[in-house]
Simulated scan of single mutants.
Amino acid sequence: MTEHTTQGRLLEGFDPKRIRHLGQEEQEQDWSQIFNSYQNDFILEAELEGFEKISEKTCGVAYLDNIRILIPVELSGYATYKEFREYAGLRISFIVKEFDQDKGVVIGSRKEALAKKAEITRRKLKEGDVILSVVRRILAKEAILDIGGIEVSLPVMEIRHGWIQSIQQELSVGDVIEVKVLAVKDTGVTVSAKALQQDPWESDVIDRFKVGNEYMGRVTGTADFGNFINLAQGVDAIAPHLKFEHVKMGDRVLVRIRHIDRKERRIVSRIVKVGT
């Protein structure tokens, strides 16, 4: 028969000072972060995992490991739940405003965390700076970037040179990209990724193409007025839709250059052959 006890009387080498309650050290460490945030406005981050109704208020729910964080919509930095919901699955910043360790309740404010980050960013930011940004959302005609507590718009035409059919083909949520600060005003900050890239219209790339000659390209987009044909990095020609032959994204085509307007940065062409 094997004898055992929780009191240590029959355990060789038993030292009561060495008793460990596995799984609890992590929770104690987490609460120290909660205390630090509450007392010192220390900014924490956690993934926004869902939304719940708490006392008739809609709250975002995040977990700092095993501690549940509630962020009411009014403390999210957004006017509506619909806007806040766009961040589901993403890491968000917050400062602890209230907590009850016994009940395991923590109330966080993303709004105050962003305001603190934004204050630091505005003190340092100036026109001409090249900074890192994180892609937070992707909309139809723009990407929304975080540059340090401040959200800015990156319009599709400021991502890179050339035609972009879909922003999702260029960027993903969470991507970290460099942008140049074009303007810093009370109304907001203007940035561009394209401003950091070489402009093909100001290089010898564009000199490769001559009116009347024919060049291979690839269909990279379509619009009501025609197809966009990529001829070189950042150089696209517009070609009217074919009457009797359909082309699709990715098709290689031969186009004849009909007109080049350097001032308007526009090349007009006609598709003369589809496929290689």
Rank of each mutant, 00 (worst) to 15 (best):
M1N: 13
T6V: 13
Q7C: 15
G13V: 03
P16L: 11
P16E: 12
K17A: 13
R18S: 10
I19K: 12
I19F: 04
R20E: 14
Q24N: 12
Q27L: 14
Q33D: 14
F35V: 11
Y38Q: 05
N40K: 15
F42N: 11
I43L: 10
L44V: 05
L44A: 06
E47K: 15
L48M: 14
G50D: 07
F51A: 09
E52V: 15
K53I: 12
K57N: 13
G60P: 04
Y63V: 04
Y63K: 13
I69V: 14
I69T: 02
I71Y: 04
G77Q: 03
Y78H: 15
K82A: 05
E83V: 02
Y87M: 11
A88R: 11
R91G: 04
I92L: 03
I95F: 11
E98H: 15
E98R: 15
F99V: 03
K103A: 14
V106K: 02
R110Y: 07
L114A: 01
A115P: 00
K116P: 03
K116Q: 13
K117T: 00
A118W: 03
A118H: 08
E119C: 02
T121I: 02
T121W: 01
T121K: 09
T121P: 00
L125M: 10
K126V: 01
I131E: 05
I131D: 08
L132W: 13
R136S: 10
I138R: 00
K141I: 09
E142S: 14
A143V: 09
L145M: 06
I147D: 03
G148I: 09
G148L: 08
E151M: 06
V152E: 03
V152A: 08
S153R: 11
E158V: 02
E158I: 06
Q165Y: 14
E170P: 10
G174H: 07
D175E: 08
V176S: 11
I177W: 05
E178H: 13
V179S: 00
V179Y: 04
V181M: 10
V181F: 05
L182N: 08
K185Y: 01
V189L: 06
V189H: 03
V189F: 10
V191W: 04
Q198T: 06
W201S: 09
D204W: 04
D204K: 09
V205M: 10
V205T: 13
V205W: 02
I206A: 01
D207H: 10
R208F: 06
K210S: 10
G212S: 13
N213W: 08
E214C: 09
G217N: 09
V219F: 01
T220E: 12
T220P: 02
G221V: 11
A223N: 05
D224Q: 07
F225A: 01
F225C: 00
N230H: 05
L231R: 01
G234Q: 04
A239E: 02
A239R: 00
H241K: 15
F244W: 04
E245Y: 07
H246P: 01
M249D: 06
M249N: 06
G250L: 11
R252K: 10
E264M: 14
R266M: 12
S269V: 05
T276H: 12
